[in-house]
Design a protein around this nucleic acid. Structure first.
Length: 396
DNA sequence: TCTGGGGTCCTAGGACCC
DNA sequence: TCTGGGGTCCTAGGACCC
């Protein structure tokens, strides 16, 4: 039997949610109806568009472009800051509402999910009628609009929800793929990014249909092992299951520095701060890592990373900090650094531990106690106020 | 005042072992 | 004296997504 999958996608999520927040706070204007964006802070060099209103889209303003560039398209552009806490609250409201209809939901990101309608169709009936009801219920109860894509698999549901926006329901069943998907530009295919799209266009593959009917040998240089898969997605073939339970495979934090930095002492301080951020998240999940990766981006936007695998897994801030400091020393060549980050991989629930003759066990126990106390204080204060980094640099 | 941050997956080369 | 492959693990980088 054919599956029936919904893809539910909030229209202009960050912008819509901020619009609601502002209206609740007495702001007169609904920023969804004006040329507006949610943007990062330009002073800290985070000045890009995170989300745009429908009118902003009409001026050609795109997600991830610089605010500088967006303003050139519309000089009276209104820019509002992001409020991720509020977004995550709205996101929960949406998923809670959806959960009342089905437990089979894959949360794909803060503003989109897949729902296995096939499993509950006998309860709610025709999927199209239900989707319209659902979209209107979300609009009435939560105050924002969504697009719903209906199809026989995740890929096509995702593609369908991306058709005309906002506040729409679309289907993309197996027998509609040719008519509804093949004429779209190759860039629109989920899974084909800018790099692959450029290479495909060079070979004369300009639409999804072109790829669907391409000779596999023609694209093997581009997709290697993934060539068959690439042709399959262009044909709307996707047998992947919904992933109902998600566990992070890695934890990372990174940030752009207010100005380019080449002083390794300053970079080390940032590593301390980052170590605290990632290790606290790790401990909160009750996990351990044995792979620590330091990420740098230089002033030319070239990203470089080096990682190290530990003999024993850990969740101790100090150990992560000391390791990352060593990694940085190993590969930092003195170039101006724009961004620095730490990523923890190979997460496990249990600590692997082999006795190491050279390890100072007392030191480790002390570090663990310090982490525990800090975590408790921070969870009580509900903030990141108490950090070793902030204590160390209390001169501000 | 030009270009974020948090993820996943894949590839390719080298090390190492049998 | 010359020279196998297969398998796995580790590392760095790139592509892609929201």
């Amino acid at each position: 039997m054919d599956r029936i999958i919904f893809h539910i996608d909030v229209n202009n999520a960050f912008l819509s949610w901020t619009a609601i927040d502002l209206l609740n706070k007495g702001y007169k204007e609904d920023i969804r109806n004006i040329v507006s964006v949610i943007g990062g802070d330009e002073k800290t060099r985070n000045g890009i568009v995170l989300s745009k209103s429908t009118p902003a889209k009409k001026y050609g303003i795109k997600t991830a472009e610089t605010l500088y560039s967006a303003r050139k398209k519309y000089n009276k552009l209104k820019v509002f800051p992001a409020d991720h806490k509020y977004y995550s609250m709205m996101s929960k409201k949406l998923f809670n509402l959806l959960s009342t209809y089905s437990p089979d939901i894959e949360v794909a990101s803060v503003d989109e999910c897949y729902l296995d309608y096939g499993k509950v169709k006998n309860l709610y009936g025709d999927e199209l009628k239900f989707a319209y009801m659902l979209k209107d219920k979300i609009k009435n109860e939560l105050g924002f609009t969504v697009n719903i894509g209906i199809a026989n698999n995740k890929l096509c549901a995702k593609m369908a929800s991306d058709f005309e926006k906002p506040d729409k329901v679309h289907t993309l069943y197996q027998n509609e793929i040719k008519d509804k998907m093949w004429s779209l530009p190759i860039d629109d295919l989920f899974g084909i990014g800018r790099s692959s799209a450029e290479k495909l266009k060079e070979k004369g593959i300009k639409t999804i249909g072109d790829l669907a009917n391409a000779d596999i040998h023609k694209i093997e240089k581009i997709f290697k092992n993934q060539s068959k898969y690439a042709i399959e997605i262009a044909n709307g073939i996707d047998n992947s299951e919904l992933e109902l339970y998600w566990e992070p495979k890695g934890i990372s934090n990174e940030f752009t520095l207010p100005k380019d930095e080449r002083n390794i002492e300053v970079l080390n301080e940032k590593l301390l701060m980052l170590s605290e951020m990632v290790s606290r998240r790790l401990r909160k999940d009750g996990k351990y890592t044995d792979t620590i990766c330091v990420i740098l981006k230089d002033n030319n936007f070239i990203r470089k990373s080096h990682q190290r695998k530990l003999k024993n897994s850990t969740n101790v801030t100090n150990e992560i900090y000391n390791t990352s400091k060593e990694i940085l020393k190993e590969f930092y060549k003195g170039e101006p650094i724009r961004l620095i980050g730490i990523r923890l991989d190979n997460l496990t629930l249990k600590e692997t531990y082999q006795i190491n003759l050279f390890e100072n066990v007392e030191e480790k126990n002390k570090d663990e106690k310090v982490d525990k106390v800090m975590d408790e204080i921070n969870s009580k204060l509900g903030s990141n106020i108490i950090t070793k980094a902030s204590l160390k640099n209390s001169n501000k």
